[in-house]
Design a protein around this nucleic acid. Structure first.
Lengths: 131, 131
DNA sequence: GTAAAACTTGACGTTGACGTCAAAGGCAAA
DNA sequence: TTTGCCTTTGACGTCAACGTCAAGTTTTAC
C-alpha cells in the first residue's frame, strides 16, 4: 500500500511516516518513480512504534529495539537496556497512578465540598510521615 | 526559605522554580531587595506540580487546577475538566501497561531464545483478532 | 572589608515529534 | 488529455519545559 493508506489505517499523518523512515524505524520499498510502498505488516509496525513513543521512548531507543523485535533475539547488553526501559515504564505507571489518586481526591473535595470525610489534604502525602 | 534551598529540597532547578512563578503556578514573597522567599509548604507544592507535569498536564492546566486545590472547591465546569484529565491519565496508564507487556514479551524472547513457549508475535495483538 | 556564594532579570538555546507550506512530479479515471 | 488527488523532497515553524550564559546585586563567611 502507499503512504496515504498506511497513514489512514495506522491513524498517523503521512508526515509522521516519513519522519519514522528518516529516523530509521520504518522502511519502505520504492517504486521506480520513487513512491513508497508498504506491506500489510507495516500497519502493526506503526502501531507498535506509536505505543513505544507513548511509553516515553525516543526514536533512537526505538530504532535500537526494533531489530530485536524482528530477530526475537538480543545481546545481553541490549537485554539490560530493555529491562531498564521496562523499569522506567513501571515507575512512570506508579507516578501516573499517584497523580490519578490526587486528582480523585481533589475531584471528591471539589465536587462535594460538604461531604468531606477524608481529613488528608491534597498538599500532604497521606502515606508518608516525613515532610 | 530562599530559592536555592527550595530547589534542593524539592529536587528541581532554580530555573524551574522561576519558570513556575512565571507561569503563575508558584508564588513567593519578596524581600525588600527582591529575593524570593518561600514557606515550608512550597516544598510539597512543588512536588505536586512535578507530579502533575509527569501526568502530562501542561502549565495552563495546572494553573487552573491549583486554586481548586487550595479552595477545596470548584465550579461544575472545572470539575468536568478535572474528570476529563483523570480519564486521560487512566487511558495513559493503560497504554503504558500495554507497552510494558510488549517489552516483557520481547525481553522474554530476546533473553531466552530457546524457551519460547508463547506463540504470539510481538507484532500482533494477542487479545484482538481484527488485524 | 572583602571574597565567595547565592540571587536577580533578560534573553537566547535545546530537544523531539512532528505541522505546514511550497514547488514539482506521478497516477487512475473520464 | 485533462482533471484532480496522491506523492516526492526540502525547509522552516512550533511548542513546552526548561538549560545556559551574561552581567549585575545581595547575602554570607571569614
Amino acid at each position: 500500500m502507499r503512504i496515504g493508506e498506511l497513514a489512514r489505517r495506522a491513524k498517523v499523518s503521512t508526515r509522521a511516516l516519513r519522519y519514522y523512515e528518516e529516523q530509521g524505524i520504518l522502511s519502505s520499498e520504492r517504486t521506480p518513480s520513487g513512491q513508497r510502498h508498504y506491506p500489510e505488516s507495516a500497519v502493526d509496525r506503526v502501531r507498535l512504534i506509536q505505543q513505544l513513543y507513548a511509553a516515553g521512548l525516543g526514536s533512537r531507543m526505538i530504532a535500537s529495539f526494533l531489530p530485536c523485535v524482528d530477530a526475537k533475539h538480543a545481546e545481553p547488553e541490549m537485554v539490560e537496556r530493555l529491562r531498564a526501559e521496562r523499569a522506567r515504564i513501571t515507575a512512570s505507571v506508579a507516578e501516573l497512578q499517584e497523580a490519578g489518586r490526587r486528582l480523585d481526591l481533589l475531584i471528591e473535595l471539589a465536587a462535594y465540598p460538604g461531604r468531606r470525610r477524608c481529613p488528608a489534604s491534597l498538599d500532604e502525602q497521606s502515606r508518608t510521615a516525613t515532610g
